[in-house]
């Protein structure tokens, strides 16, 4: 095994197949962030994952984009393996959204102005 590469198996990290809770996603995030900070390449294994939510993925990978780790390093270092087509599509949406979310924070607030204002209920 290459010393510069690590496999993070999601089901091992959270101790189950249901990848639902944001708190469990945090555990995966900690593992990924630790490996990235150590300069390692990561195979992020989805093997055995049963259910998967955006809430879990937002925590597990979405918060990688909050600015502590260079985007290029994330892009070059993590490769998902063993993911179903559905899971891969969800992962892609979460990652794309996270990039937007942290790139342009004001965009989300100003979107409110598109909705007509009114009196409080």
């Amino acid at each position: 095994m290459n010393n510069g590469e690590v496999t993070i198996k999601i089901t091992d990290v959270i101790g189950g197949k249901l990848c639902i809770a944001s708190d469990d996603g945090d555990k995966v995030y900690q593992e990924i962030a630790r490996a990235l900070k150590a300069g390692k390449k990561i195979k992020l294994s989805f093997e055995g994952v049963n259910d998967l939510t955006s809430a879990f993925l937002n925590a597990a990978v979405g918060q990688l984009y909050k600015g502590e780790i260079p985007l290029e390093q994330i892009s070059e270092s993590i490769k998902p393996v063993g993911a179903s087509s559905d899971d891969l599509h969800l992962l892609k949406r979460v990652v794309d959204r996270a990039k937007e979310f942290f790139k342009d924070p004001e965009r989300f607030k100003t979107a409110a102005r598109k909705v007509l204002g009114g009196d409080d209920a």
Partner: peptide, 8 residues
């Protein structure tokens, strides 16, 4: 310092 959201 947070997590993204809004997809659910």
């Amino acid at each position: 310092g947070g997590k993204p959201g809004g997809l659910g």
